[in-house]
Design a protein around this nucleic acid. Sequence first.
DNA 1: ATTCATTTTAAAAAGTCATTTAAAATCCTT
DNA 2: AAGGATTTTAAATGACTTTTTAAAATGAAT
Lengths: 207, 207
Amino acid sequence: MDTSRETDLNTEQKIKEAARKVFLEKGFDGAKLKHIAQEADVNIALVNYYFRSKEQLYKSIFLEAFKNFFGTIYHLLNDELPLEIKIWKLIDRYTDFLAANPHLPLFVLSELLKGGGVLITDLEMPKLLKTSHFVMQLREEGERGTIRKVDPIQVLSTLIGTLVLPFMAKPIITLIADFENEEQFRVFLENRKTVVFEMVMGYLRSR
Amino acid sequence: MDTSRETDLNTEQKIKEAARKVFLEKGFDGAKLKHIAQEADVNIALVNYYFRSKEQLYKSIFLEAFKNFFGTIYHLLNDELPLEIKIWKLIDRYTDFLAANPHLPLFVLSELLKGGGVLITDLEMPKLLKTSHFVMQLREEGERGTIRKVDPIQVLSTLIGTLVLPFMAKPIITLIADFENEEQFRVFLENRKTVVFEMVMGYLRSR
DNA sequence: ATTCATTTTAAAAAGTCATTTAAAATCCTT
DNA sequence: AAGGATTTTAAATGACTTTTTAAAATGAAT
């Protein structure tokens, strides 16, 4: 019986996990096969043996990250709940999700903006957002006058932007706010949930 | 007499402008001296002749970008204006500033997070934000009850996050919103100004 | 135990990139 | 126009990376 998690994984999985870590931290160009192989504790040639090329390995990691990033939002947006509760849940869960995957936003956005590898037009996930339950809900309640009439894209941008920024700007926030340990940053994130919630709900309810 | 702007510049300036463009678009690792030299229409060896090394050239570009990014915020935050007017001006001007420098946020944040080159602790600019007129103003008016008591870092994060996101996520927003030309994105940005303004002011005034 | 497929390794090969070199071209001063 | 400094170029260098190769190790099936 083997108790360590490392050795449970087969070589292919080990390499993929190592690649995920290195690519997410350094991006395609910054990541070297040497780093990935070291991280996986494996011979460099094995990376190509299992994945044919750096590019192919990268693509599988990127697509996975991309789906994870938007899939999580999509899932939360389609939860059939009253607007206010759904917004709270989105803020709460997505913050926790990002805390567990802090490199995801910057990786996905910066690699997308460089546009080197994957064609953005092939990526179905983001398109689905505009037919999500949440967007319909904003429209309907806007019509009914329960909330202000809004452009759903603006609301989505605001939500995602406010939730995602702390992770992309962590070094700067830490500097400005004089955080001295991880705990203080964690508290900041926890407070952030209510700030964002009150701000967005206040906006929707006003008028 | 020479009417074109290109040829007015001396070689060193030409290289620096080319480097700014390429580094901002591709980051340190993605940018190759070949690209920079091509963009500047110059022999590769000249880049090293004028700047000694890729690293040194990069550092001068990064620091300039960093100061530009935070300097612009800092300047706007220290404008001695009533809170509401200042917030509007910040949103309006910073959006226009970013529209003219759309790669700046992702470049600065992602290069900072990788942490390769410049030490973040050496960068004075962000520290200044917490002693800015704006932050003092938030505190004072919070005490006086003119606005809600807030954590200034939360407000700053929200403002910067909401303003900066459209530029970092432009490909995705374009996809979700079905923008078919630049003009539609421009309109989105213009509308965004009032959305952000109303949201932030609503939050500060509530309670 | 032998055979065969799979996995792993070390080393070579091929390619890319930043940097250096030395010669050539240009410019400026006299 | 000649001389000397500055700028520019093509080519070489050397370090590093990805990919390929072929042999070695491992493991499973007979």
